[in-house]
Amino acid sequence: MKQQRFGIGILILCSVFLIALLLNLALGSVIIPLKELGKLFLGSSTSSSFEYIMWDYRFPKALAAIAIGGSLGVSGLLMQTFFRNPLAGPFVLGISSGASLGVALFFFGSGLLFGLESYQSISRTGVIIASSIGSGLVFSAIFTIALRVKNTMGLLIIGLMFGSFTTAIVTVLSTFSSAEILQRFVFWTYGNLGNLKFQELQLMTIFILIALGCCVMIIKALNSLLLGENYAQSMGIPVRQTRFIILFATCLLTGASTAFAGPIGFVGLAVPHVVRLLLPTSEHRILLPAVFIMGGCLLLLCDTLAQLPGLEYSLPINGVTSMVGAPLLIWLILRKRKIEL
């Protein structure tokens, strides 16, 4: 047997990604034909309505889907490697629950204090700020705890507890709020890729790029952590520093995407597994880019489904990700019969 090569797998992944991107740009309540798509990219389109749909709506949405799907996937990979647990995902640290709590407090609080009218005008920025603060707070709490709790499994359980604690507060808060505000909050939890403004997209991309840069810096450390912290340390990896970089990157990736698009579930947990089932390797030099591409791919496809032509409403992205992702993952596992990190 020769050393494994994954060139073909990566090629397939990239072509699927391109197809997903084209489908996502073409399909919707208005279908843009492939020819027109080409013209749009070459700048020779004659249809102003296509131009409007493309550059003001679909293109930024596709970019958001790639960035968010990719970063959720990568943060899932980081968590699974860090905890050496296949059930870990970006939500295990409670980051997105923190964001939910922030947004819930913002919705319910501003509803109570100012009434509905004034709240609507500040809503969009307010939500982003509130969820950033929420995830930031949980993030710093976890950092403080990581200083004291050396045990990785302990940290995992504490993260989960953070999650259920914040969810509980949200539940309690929602009992005291009006139906309208509650509805708004519920809509936020559905996730939304569509209404990101260009500046928001830029800001999010900066955060994500910083986090991805961190990941690339610690590829050796991630690989060696698969043998456990003792071995990693014996191979000259600064384990303490690496733990912080991993936590930092995960919080940034999850926090940024949750702040701008709401808590999009499932992608983070499922994508690393899908990639490992297609490209059976634990080498992070391959996994990191592949997971990012696959994450973007999955969210693009889900978003395409959510806005399929003929549907009067676009479906909540959060529902579609699980409805597509769960059967896909089950099917893959049944085919391969074994799940490994």
Binding site: Q3, Q4, R84, K220, N223, S224, L226, L227, G228, N230, Y231, M235, G236, I237, R276, P280, T281, S282, E283, K338, E340, L341
Partner: peptide, 20 residues
């Protein structure tokens, strides 16, 4: 310790020995 990721190949693990 023995609970390593089963996807790692022997070659992968040996390669890590060169990390320093």
């Amino acid at each position: 310790e023995r609970n390593f990721s089963g996807l790692l190949t022997g070659w992968d693990i040996l390669s890590m020995g060169r990390y320093p």
